[in-house]
């Protein structure tokens, strides 16, 4: 695995350390500019587009960024990320509805659940490499799915419905989509910046070393398994943040959130956007959610088109949208 590993994600990510002049915060200028542009677009967008749709895009963009931390920067393909997204969704919904927690604590409970789950499954999954790692994570996610189907508090096929959005910090009423939108924007951008920080820290450099050549990273004295586990847990936690937020936005947690097709979707978003790029998963999530939105009435065609996109991306377009774009402008994105 390790020898072939670099092909998984690498063409997309030439070492970003040297490239671009750094701004005062240490972030290359063009990255800072893009984050500011995202913020500006995010602030303006709800005046032109339907806020609920935008919130869906942001939740999935954060989910895909969390997934990309694992696949794009560490070279680990988890095929069961719906487990963390979905379990956080269930726990947040339960916390808000049954325990009556305010939304910020409900989401944090979801994050905590996803983190613990990520720790347990991650510790087991990193005992195998490569293709087995993907199968193990998928199998455990299916176990979480069956648990969600049978557990008394998840509501089986119905899920947890009519989750109250509540009062943020006790005084901001989130009932209005418009108010909630800006909260979700803050969560999503905050999460993405945190992931950006992790990727570009010394810790992130070690992750890239593991992705490129695991045996070499080991021989340099890094405890590779600890790095892998830490990344797995971080990725699960951010996926949980996305899932918990999604439960508050849609006031619903359901089996869709933990189903294997959700795990497949997040892989697809990352793949089409460009794995191992900072902004690729955001673009990928926007593309896929938009597509689902327009094709929702065509039933199984959504699945078929997703399958076709998978095939086309793998055969012809492995670098993804942002991967191609960054080659064109010769700056890592």
């Amino acid at each position: 695995m390790s020898a072939a590993n670099h092909t998984a994600a690498s063409h997309a990510a030439p070492a970003p350390v040297a490239a671009g002049r750094a701004s005062a915060t240490g972030m290359p200028r063009h990255h800072a500019a893009i984050f500011l542009a995202l913020l500006a677009a995010g602030l303006a967008a709800p005046f032109f587009l339907y806020p609920v749709f935008l919130m869906k895009v942001m939740c999935f963009a954060l989910f895909a960024c969390a997934f990309n931390l694992l696949l794009g920067y560490t070279g680990l393909l988890s095929f069961g990320h719906a487990a963390y997204f979905g379990s956080a969704s269930y726990i947040s919904a339960h916390a808000a509805k049954v325990w009556g927690l305010p939304p910020e604590l409900a989401i944090l409970s979801g994050v905590a659940a996803a983190t613990v789950l990520g720790l347990v499954i991650g510790a087991l999954a990193i005992r195998r490499q490569g293709i087995y790692f993907a199968m193990v994570t998928l199998a455990f996610a299916q176990m979480v799915f069956f648990f969600s189907l049978q557990a008394p508090f998840t509501g089986g096929e119905d899920g947890i419905q009519a989750v109250p959005r509540g009062m943020l910090f006790g005084f901001i009423n989130l009932r209005s989509d418009f108010t909630l939108y800006f909260v979700v924007l803050a969560i999503a951008l905050g999460g993405m910046l945190a992931i950006y920080r992790i990727i570009h820290s010394p810790f992130g450099q070690v992750l890239k070393a593991i992705r490129e050549n695991e045996a070499r990273a080991t021989s340099l004295g890094y405890r590779v398994n600890r790095y892998k586990l830490a990344t797995f847990v971080l990725s699960a936690a951010f996926a949980g943040l996305a899932g918990g937020t999604k439960a508050i936005v849609f006031q619903l947690a359901s089996l869709t959130d933990v189903h294997w097709s959700m795990s497949g979707e997040v892989v697809l978003m990352t793949l089409i956007g460009g794995m191992g790029t900072v902004f690729g998963p955001i673009v990928g999530a926007a593309v896929i959610v938009t597509m689902q939105n327009y094709l929702a009435t065509f039933g199984a065609w959504v699945t078929i088109i997703q399958g076709v996109i998978f095939v086309v991306c793998v055969l012809l377009f492995r670098e993804g949208i942002i991967g191609v774009f960054q080659k064109w402008i010769k700056k890592p994105l």
Binding site: M1, A4, N5, T7, A8, L77, F79, G130, I131, A134, G264, V267, L271, T303, I304, Q306, G307, V308, I309, F310, V311, C313, V314, L315, R318
Partner: peptide, 16 residues
């Protein structure tokens, strides 16, 4: 290529 691409391709085929 990496084995992972084979997994992703056949996953896409299964969806289709």
């Amino acid at each position: 290529l990496d084995h992972l691409y084979g997994l992703l391709l056949t996953f896409g085929l299964a969806l289709i």
